[in-house]
Write a protein that binds this DNA or RNA. Structure first.
Lengths: 221, 221
DNA sequence: TGCGATTTGTCCGTATGTATT
DNA sequence: TAATACATACGGACAAATCGC
């Protein structure tokens, strides 16, 4: 693997990993607003950790891109802009197409079963009305293609994109007060993933991403 | 010990950035061999810094992927494998094609002049016989497409790929005792970058990358 | 199996450098 | 210019985990 995947190994994580995860959640759900300037001492006290692990957590979120640091001036939370969203979707479209090209020869019955399982869990979350859970499940659904590709750099790139998507999704969901993209769109995503034509799948990904982009773009400053 | 190597631009960057840069160079040029386990106290003494900034530098290189960390076990330098090289080139091909798709409408006379300037500097380095410099110049040449794309995520992705490429390039150069890819290949790269057909450019990138991959693959464990 | 040695992870106090007022 | 606030850096200390014997 590339970086340590924080979201796994739930039990015995180091303090800086837990701190990074907590910060990431606070940023994603808007508790810490975009553009907020973070002061280390105050934040360390609030989180109940010392500055050392906090600074390492900050360094991690910097590398993910959720925090922006200016030396000797401090760090601030990334602002959500239409330009940023555009670049995010351009990038995400590219890496997801890359993943599909890479995974295409590796497709199997088991991988399709895995995909179906993720899809079922997404539908389950949507029906439950828990929109935060639905967002996570949707990200897990798309993670299928990266894991199947087996390319550590792609998996890592996805891990970096995911928290950004979560931020924008939450923003969109708050504006609309309903959960993510339509069910039908994901049905067609699965059809193409299991279908026979790679070019058709790539085209659909492009359209699928553009649809997601258009849904969110109106709610960004 | 190896503190003699780099003393470049210690200007106004923070200590952890300088430390990360020094470590990166030591890893790239093989002074610290792949697979080496790093112990913090010893390394801090050798580099003349305290553990705090060293740990942040390590965290940075972890996120780049040059160092691998297992909690409480330590960090070790990434090993160069044929599988890793394959994934690196698959990924690099993808993001460079992505960059070309993104920059294509933004091409201009000035951007072509910029590209020519980078090319000239590469040829200059090749002719000078300084292979380390030639490697840097080749990376700067390719960086053109990412900068012109203007996509911050793509630029960031390239920034993470670059140090890995440097490691493999140095490995290859040491085996061959000559500098990088042929001049003709870069000439054609420029022709396609300035040409009229995006699909042709994308195809050439694929071939160009595969050629680079084949040149290096034989020298990896 | 346990025990000690080593290393990482964490915390604290303090000093220095930088930006801002 | 002085003063304040904060980020950065250092050193020492202890706790926690791992590894070798």
């Amino acid at each position: 693997m590339f970086t340590t995947d924080i979201e796994q190994i739930p039990g015995r994580r180091t303090l800086w990993e837990q701190t990074a995860q907590r910060l990431q959640t606070l940023i994603a759900n808007g508790t810490i607003a975009p553009g907020t300037r973070l002061t280390e001492n105050a934040l360390a006290k609030q989180l109940g950790v010392s500055r050392a692990p906090l600074r390492e957590a900050i360094r991690h979120l910097m590398n993910i891109g959720l925090l922006i640091s200016e030396p000797y001036k401090g760090v601030r939370v990334l602002e959500l802009t239409s330009e940023g969203l555009h670049q995010l979707y351009e990038y995400r479209t590219g890496i997801e197409q890359m993943a599909f090209r890479s995974l295409w020869p590796k497709r199997s019955a088991e991988s399709f079963a895995d995909l179906d399982r993720r899809h079922a869990r997404l539908l389950e979350a949507i029906d439950s009305g828990d929109s935060a859970l639905a967002i996570d499940r949707e990200l897990e659904l798309h993670q299928w293609c990266y894991e199947l590709s087996g390319n550590a750099l792609l998996i890592d790139a996805w891990g970096r994109v995911k928290p950004h998507l979560r931020c924008y999704f939450v923003l969109h969901q708050r504006a609309h007060n309903r959960s993510g993209p339509a069910r039908q769109s994901h049905d067609r995503y699965l059809e193409h993933a299991k279908g026979e034509s790679l070019p058709a799948a790539l085209d659909f990904i492009e359209a699928h991403m553009k649809q997601g982009f258009d849904q969110v773009i109106d709610h960004v400053g």
